[in-house]
Design a protein around this nucleic acid. Structure first.
Lengths: 148, 148
DNA sequence: AATATATACTTGCATTTTGCAAGTAATAAG
DNA sequence: CTTATTACTTGCAAAATGCAAGTATATATT
């Protein structure tokens, strides 16, 4: 089999670069990790800190501090769970939602531009492939232990 | 059009996680950035510092320091170019080549495991798609300015 | 030839990010 | 009631980051 790594190394690097750019919204500037955190909080329904940190494969202490920063920036709220007071539930503030939505838009815009260089057929194939890849990775034991 | 970002966000996160793991070779430990640098030096033929930094979209000062570390670790050599003595050419030492090759193997092994969850047809489609994506991204103006 | 400009790389900060170890507080298990 | 376990926080110390300013070499301008 050919060298898979080359293909994927270049691809992930490019997406990394893409991600780097797209994190300034109005006056607010958000780091790459922070944008991942915002994304994941918006996707899940009032997740706990531990849960999001696991999903992102982040050390919980680093995560804890990032959340502190995001709370100070008034993008995220941290609410103790009454049933289990060790746990804090995370949610986006109105501004946090706005920021997350804006990043989402920007990324989609970038991606659409990338896809504009393809035929309709190719586009569908690529999207199907990414979906397949995600599924296959979630099944793999080695890679990507953290939950989807 | 559906939400492309979701698909790609998850995919790139997973590859990021995959990358994180695979950077300890024997007694040597290499960071994720360092593995990208090693990879790129091995791919190019005696590239200059500026060139590799550009390829990876890294700040040149950060890059300079990373190279200093890699030289100290005896994984990389830095040779001044006689024709233009501002320029330094980068290359891997024997040990550097070994480390790069080992990481490459590991990554390929992981990728093969991922692909094991697919049919032959799917596998070919996915590989073709990644190639397409890389090409499309290299054509895009927004994303991934750094050269391939 | 002399001066100015540009390029390739390095160094000096000051800030941010990271992760292990050790801590607190709350729940669960024995 | 005592002993885990779990969820999260804090204290370091190390590493990574990037801007500003530096050195050294090469190129362009006059």
């Amino acid at each position: 089999m050919e060298n898979l790594r080359e293909l994927f190394q270049v691809m992930t690097r490019r997406f990394g670069l893409l991600n780097k750019n797209c994190c300034q919204i109005g006056g607010i500037e958000v780091s790459l990790v922070q944008s991942h955190i915002l994304y994941e909080i918006s996707r899940q329904n009032k997740p706990s800190m531990q849960h999001v940190a696991d999903t992102l494969g982040m050390d919980i202490t680093t995560f804890s501090r990032q959340i502190q920063t995001l709370v100070k920036m008034e993008l995220v709220t941290k609410t103790p769970l009454p049933e289990d007071r060790r746990v804090y539930l995370l949610a986006l503030t109105t501004e946090g939602k706005f920021v997350a939505a804006t990043i989402d838009e920007q990324m989609n815009q970038y991606l659409n531009e990338v896809f504009a260089n393809m035929s309709e057929f190719e586009r569908e194939m690529v999207i199907k492939s990414v979906r397949l890849l995600n599924e296959a990775m979630s099944k793999s034991s080695v890679c990507c232990k953290p939950l989807a």
